[in-house]
């Protein structure tokens, strides 16, 4: 089974890097969809089946936390796994995110192996 992943970041470099890291991770990844902010991500999720969302926090228009809050508010995307990609390595912030139902948190810089460790356990069986 190949998984469809949605990568959300306003940085072209970050989106390209995450796409490459996913491809190099060895995970069974099929399509990788890209979005520049939370609003675009919601549009993609309306149109496509997504297995996991990999998102930055700081983005214009709709940031990563607003995206997760919007997803959690409706029944369709409530249980979709989300991994936050951030440069902030704060345990207190991770605990805050756990309360939003976010189980995956990866800090930059990261390797494809590190990303695999985080993503693997969150993909649906």
């Amino acid at each position: 089974m190949a998984y469809t992943i949605l990568v959300v970041d306003n940085s072209l470099l970050a989106r390209t890097f995450m796409e490459k890291a996913l491809r190099l991770s060895g995970l069974p990844i099929g399509e990788i969809c890209l979005a520049c902010n939370g609003r675009e991500a919601l549009q993609v999720m309306e149109e496509r089946w997504i297995d996991l969302v990999l998102t930055a926090i700081n983005m214009p228009e709709m940031n990563g936390l607003e995206l997760v809050q919007t997803m959690r508010a409706g029944p369709a995307l409530k249980n979709l796994p989300v991994v936050i990609v951030s440069s902030v390595r704060s345990e207190a912030r991770m605990r805050e995110l756990e309360q939003l139902g976010i189980k995956g948190y990866v800090t930059k810089p990261f390797t494809p192996e590190k990303l695999k460790q985080i993503v693997e356990g969150l993909l649906p069986a």
């Binding site: 902030v88 704060s90 207190a92 912030r93 810089p109």
Partner: peptide
């Protein structure tokens, strides 16, 4: 962005929250 995140951990540890 990444240097700032790492600098804050080096200066203040992981137990506090900064907004970037």
């Amino acid at each position: 962005n990444v240097i700032c995140g790492e600098l804050l951990v080096a200066l203040a540890g992981k137990a506090v929250i900064f907004d970037l």
